[in-house]
Design a protein around this nucleic acid. Structure first.
Length: 461
RNA sequence: GUGGUUUUAGCUCAGUUGGUUAGAGCGCCUGAUUGUGGUUCAGGAGGUCGUGGGUUCGAGCCCCAUAUUCCACCCCA
């Protein structure tokens, strides 16, 4: 066995016990909200057939899919002519049949199509699993990270969108976040804008450019729009829309005027208004008001959104979006099941972790480890302790016996390092009297108790 | 895919113009204390300086390549 220096694959991380406690706190909090809104959990395999994933995320996305090399003599299946000209793209499909999942939405679409006869529509599912992207790692960006998705298929109602707003609000504030914005936009409004300036075919270029407004400013956006085929005249017409300010109501009023000639644009405005109304009615007067902002520059990369688009950003820490989603008509069309609409949102658990860590928002006592350690003096004491260990555990007390007769100093040190609050000392004296020494590691106090009294005492705390 | 940056003890990091034996803090181990941790004191172990080449009498330091960290762009959670 050669001695290889251990290292992690780029962009991946280990999660130690303390980190897992915190991560599970996030997952549990989010899942609890999902369940409360009537969503049921599913899981799909880590790997999908490559053909299931390719072509769903655009050219950029396809490059970021982790492909799995075929097993066995994989080169024998490859067309030698393609190999000779070193055309990587052309040989990929012959070298790789499987790939790691890139997101949870496309596998879900596949799932819906394959199980269409078993599921009742509308189908509400949530899914919390890792996804993999062959991106360059940087702040808040990993190659393996968890998404927490909720999606509903088969329901056109905008009530779903409104509930997503409430889910974001509830889950994130349960996690301790105080100042975050839920941004909402509608693809139809963007289409309407592109239609008004007479360049509907450039909608993607338009949205990609104006999406960067808060990053590069209006001048930067103008420059990019010019590069992407818009004229100065177009930009002048776009300017009031891009720089739209004020409350949601003012923005909507302005947009209605600007888009009065675009049926699709007005349609999008109407959808946004319906969502706002649903949210207000759902919350009533007592509900915690979400910071819901209509943001016309919100585009999001994925090409398949067709209606409302969501993105969540925290205002307390510099971090990319911690969640996003939207509606996609014809979610399952790519797998041959037409006319099924879907809508969903996602939480970026790893980014949320980084945010909570930076803001120190993880609860203090999330660690629920061993409550009592039984010391181990010698084989006789160990033998005496074993039934007691069973008794403690049978009473629901998390307990462990130090597995060897090491020096007591070492055993106490172990309890200390592991933050175990009590140590039960059992030596010859204790065995004779059947009164055990229970030491409180925090106060340092010790008392002699029967096993029954020990159990009663430990149950109290 | 593009540009920059990082890598030295288990961890966080010093390391002068290229010059003898590479340091500190924390952690770890041993003892003071054979049945008592977290505090204190005394002592100790631990480094192919990311890896592979090169320049030089001599490289942790200079050059090339490569991996890796972090950051920005593209894109995205």
């Amino acid at each position: 066995m050669s001695n290889i220096k251990p290292s992690l694959a780029k962009g991946t991380r280990d999660f130690s016990p303390q980190e897992m406690t915190k991560r599970n706190h996030i997952f549990d909090t989010i899942k609890k909200v999902f369940k409360k809104y009537g969503y049921a959990e599913i899981q799909t395999p880590s790997m999908e057939n490559l053909s299931t994933l390719t072509g769903k995320y655009g050219d950029e996305g396809d490059k970021l899919i982790f492909k799995i090399l075929n097993s066995g003599d994989f080169l024998s299946k490859v067309n030698p002519d393609l190999l000779a000209v070193k055309n990587s793209n052309a040989v990929t499909s012959q070298l790789s049949e499987k790939a790691l999942r890139y997101d949870l939405t496309v596998p879900f679409a596949r799932y819906v199509v394959m199980h269409q006869n078993d599921i009742a529509l509308p189908f509400k599912r949530f899914q919390v699993q890792p996804v993999w992207r062959a991106d360059r790692p940087q702040k808040g960006r990993y190659r393996e990270f968890y998404q927490c998705d909720v999606d509903v298929v088969g329901s056109e109602s905008l009530l779903n969108e409104a509930e997503f707003v409430l889910i974001y609000q509830e889950a994130l504030s349960n996690l301790g976040l105080k100042d975050f914005s839920i941004k909402i936009n509608n693809r139809k409004i963007l289409s309407g804008i592109a239609e008004i300036i007479g360049k509907p075919e450039l909608i993607i270029d338009m949205t990609v450019a104006i999406d960067k407004l808060d990053k590069i400013g209006f001048d930067g956006v103008s420059k990019e729009l010019l590069e992407r085929g818009f004229t100065q005249e177009d930009i002048d017409r776009l300017k009031p829309v891009i720089l739209l300010e004020g409350t949601n109501d003012t923005k909507l009023t302005t947009l209605k005027q600007v888009l009065s000639a675009s049926q699709i644009g007005l349609n999008g405005i109407e959808e946004i208004e319906l969502v706002f109304n649903y949210v207000q009615t759902l919350l009533g007067k007592d509900g915690e008001q979400p910071k819901l902002e209509l943001d016309i520059t919100l585009a999001r990369g994925l090409n398949y959104y067709t209606g409302c688009i969501f993105e969540v950003k925290t205002n307390e820490v510099a971090m990319g979006s911690i969640g996003g989603g939207g509606r996609y008509d014809d979610l399952t069309g790519m797998f041959g099941l037409k006319g099924l609409t879907g809508a969903g949102i996602s939480f970026g658990a790893d980014r949320i972790y980084d945010v909570l860590e930076e803001l120190n928002l993880f609860p203090e006592s999330t660690a629920a480890g061993t409550k009592v350690l039984i010391s181990n003096f010698d084989p006789a004491a160990e033998n005496y302790a074993l039934p007691l260990l069973y008794q403690l555990r049978a009473s629901g007390i998390s307990a462990e016996l130090y597995p060897s007769a090491a020096k007591l100093k070492k055993q106490m040190g172990y309890a200390d390092a592991k933050n175990i609050p009590f140590v039960l000392l059992i030596g010859s004296e204790e065995m004779q009297s059947a009164l055990l020494t229970l030491k409180n590691m925090h106060s340092g106090e010790q008392e002699k108790l029967s096993i029954e009294a020990v159990i009663a005492r430990l149950r109290e705390v």
